[in-house]
């Protein structure tokens, strides 16, 4: 394994992991834009991830794709065996497990340990080298249970029944997780959603997820502002305070993101309600996971690299920050 301009490169198998530039051979851990990109010759990923990439036009007709369900071993060439283990991040998200000459390297991609009704739970894979992210690697990040945050939203809707709660969510993963959890918490009205969330929600449904009734905002008469009072509207985060939100009666900008833990961040986004909902492991889960893999070496790709590197070293785990360029913290959250 080495680091090249395009990202992680597996030398014997001649392929990249989550490359951000077009390459001949790419292993993709999940469908978020900072991991999956277009223009590759061959792609190995889970079938769900390949579907997501297709929906987002990341794979063209000429792209050769190999869909590997979790656990299915595959000869990648050069003596390297690849298989995927679930990462608990979003639908189809996987840790890429590389086995070569008795050594096992796990590239975890993005992952989380908190329960999520819309994807398979994280699986611990014992390994020699564990490659992790560090998006929320600071002791200040201790994600609360999702139910608490959804209850916060429900309480706000009870207190302010005349306002339209516009919830900014990332289109892939966050949107569906929030909808599903709201349904489990007993929210019965239709969801009104922005067009950008439609196709991926349908994709989740094709994998058996049920979000109840939802409707595109664009299909509702512009003058029918009152329709949304006391209801939940979902849209990409950038839209909550943008022109798009003017069509609603008395909108209450809400953001669902792990960053909402930090007050100043919530204010920056001009959120009046911040729901701490994260697709990533928090501080304690990052440490716990690194420990549980039993890896003697941990490589840290991006995020609060220094803190995680320091804390692991203190526990006697050899850790190294790689400071990969090009992976932006904002994208998945």
């Amino acid at each position: 394994m080495e680091i090249r301009e395009g990202g992680f490169y597996c030398v014997p198998a001649e392929c990249y992991v989550d490359p951000m530039v077009p390459v001949t051979r790419a292993v993709v851990t999940h469908g978020h834009a900072d991991h999956a990109s277009r223009g590759h010759g061959r792609v190995w990923a889970t079938p769900e991830t390949i579907d997501i990439m297709r929906t987002r036009n990341y794979v063209a007709d000429e792209t050769q794709t190999t869909g590997l369900p979790y656990g299915q071993r595959h000869d990648l060439g050069g003596g390297v065996t690849l298989w995927f283990a679930s990462a608990g991040h979003i639908l189809g998200s996987a840790q890429a497990v590389f086995e070569y000459q008795g050594q096992r390297i796990v590239a975890a991609g993005d992952f989380k340990r908190h329960p999520d009704p819309t994807c398979a739970p994280f699986e611990v894979v014992p390994c020699d080298v564990f490659i992790t992210e560090a998006t929320f690697a600071l002791p200040v990040f201790q994600h609360p249970p999702l139910e608490d945050e959804v209850e916060k939203l429900m309480r706000s809707m009870r207190t302010l029944p005349d306002r339209t709660h516009i919830v900014g969510v990332y289109a892939l993963g966050k949107c569906q997780r929030v909808m599903k959890t709201l349904r489990l918490a007993g929210y019965e009205h239709p969801f009104y959603i922005h067009g950008a969330l439609k196709r991926l929600t349908e994709l989740y449904e094709s994998y058996g997820q049920d979000f109840g009734v939802w409707q595109l905002v664009s299909e509702i008469d512009r003058n029918d502002k009152d329709r949304f009072r006391g209801k939940i509207v979902l849209c990409p985060p950038a839209q909550i305070n943008d022109r798009w939100s003017r069509r609603f009666a008395d909108p209450l900008p809400t953001v669902a993101s792990g960053w909402m833990q930090i007050r100043a961040r919530a204010r920056q986004k001009r959120a009046e309600l911040g729901l701490v909902v994260s697709d990533h492991a928090d501080w304690n889960d990052l440490l716990r996971t690194c420990r549980e893999t039993g890896a003697g070496m941990v490589w840290i790709t991006h995020g609060r690299v220094e803190a995680l590197e320091y804390a692991l070293k203190k526990e006697g785990i050899n850790a190294k920050g790689l400071h990969l360029i090009g992976i932006e913290e904002a994208a998945g959250e």
Partner: peptide, 26 residues
């Protein structure tokens, strides 16, 4: 209660003492 280096990193990230303590209180 907390490793001073991790506390320092947290504090610089959050930008403020009280909020850092509120979030990271062990």
């Amino acid at each position: 209660r907390m490793d001073p280096y991790l506390f320092q990193l947290s504090r610089h990230y959050v930008g403020e003492l009280s909020e850092t303590v509120a979030l990271a209180w062990p």
